[in-house]
Design a protein around this nucleic acid. Structure first.
Length: 274
DNA sequence: GCGATCCTGGCC
DNA sequence: GGCCAGGATCGC
């Protein structure tokens, strides 16, 4: 579910857990702990103090005062909710709960369990998920030259598939990939090899722009997404094509069609995207 | 590179 | 009952 803007909004909404110490850790029997064991994860997190929150692509990194970080990926349906007035009933599908020294609780809730919980060291070089990520779209590390070089490694894929490949660059998901392609005026089915460098740079610029606007509006809430304080994002009202099959684009330039690529819906406007 | 697969829930 | 969902991996 959550793409870069949603995870960045989540990160910002959880600033209040900084300096809090973890007095209790609950992990459900089905907690999606990966690349380590539940007991090892519990041992690292218990009694640690939160230093700060970081983000890489769609991964949230909760830095601890013991040189380790808890790495949270929300998958399709995951939520992190920081509850300062503790709700007595543990919600269904709560897979992790951190109890802080001020009585507040951070809960990881994920019905589908496509999300993951893992650990990384300070250098961020021993986590298999982070190891697979390309440069983040918004942290300043991705310039035109680097983007072009990485695109040209995949000449035979279409542009939508390219954008969803987190190894090329990380942060775009289904919504913002569709929106970036619309803004760049590029057909999602077009192959990288049939796209010139100027067009690819337009795609990079559009991708960064849409992600920034997504952050500005606190992410997109269709069904599940809530930030750490339980609030919805407002970006849905600014989407041009996503989830608008058969309707006009938001700016009225044409009609939106839905096709399927990689078993995912792609929304685009043939009149605008060539 | 492509298709199947992991899961649960909501909606038609 | 069937289809769909802000994701990503693993076979062939």
């Amino acid at each position: 579910m959550p793409e870069l803007p949603e995870v960045e909004t989540l990160r910002r909404s959880l600033q209040g857990i900084q300096k809090r110490s973890v007095l209790g850790v609950y992990l459900s029997k089905l907690a999606p702990v990966e690349a380590t064991t539940a007991s090892a994860l519990r041992q690292v997190v218990l009694d640690a103090t939160i230093i700060q929150l970081n983000r890489w692509g769609k991964y949230l990194l909760i830095d601890l005062d013991n040189e380790q970080s808890l790495v949270v990926h929300l998958g399709m349906s995951g939520k992190l909710l920081w509850q300062q007035d503790e709700i007595p009933v543990r919600p269904l599908h709560t897979h992790m709960e951190l109890n802080f020294d001020d009585g507040s609780v951070l809960r990881f809730i994920d019905a589908r369990r496509f999300g993951t919980l893992s650990l990384t060291n300070r250098q961020r070089d021993n986590n298999p998920f982070l190891a697979r990520l390309g440069p983040d779209y918004l942290n300043g590390a991705l310039d035109e030259k680097i983007f072009l070089k990485r695109c040209h490694r995949h000449p035979k894929v279409n542009l939508k598939t390219l954008l969803l490949n987190q190894k090329v660059a990380t942060g775009l998901g289904n919504i913002y990939a569709c929106e970036a392609l619309y803004q760049a005026g590029l057909d999602p089915c077009r192959l990288v090899s049939a796209t010139n460098d100027q067009q690819l740079v337009e795609l990079l610029i559009a991708s960064k722009d849409r992600l920034k606007v997504g952050v500005k509006y606190g992410g997109t809430s269709f069904r599940d997404y809530l930030n750490g304080l339980g609030h919805r994002g407002k970006m849905k009202d600014f989407l041009q094509v996503y989830d608008r099959e058969g309707q006009l684009t938001l700016d009225g330039r044409g009609t939106v069609q839905r096709i399927v690529q990689q078993q995912r819906s792609t929304f685009y406007c043939p009149e605008v995207q060539k």
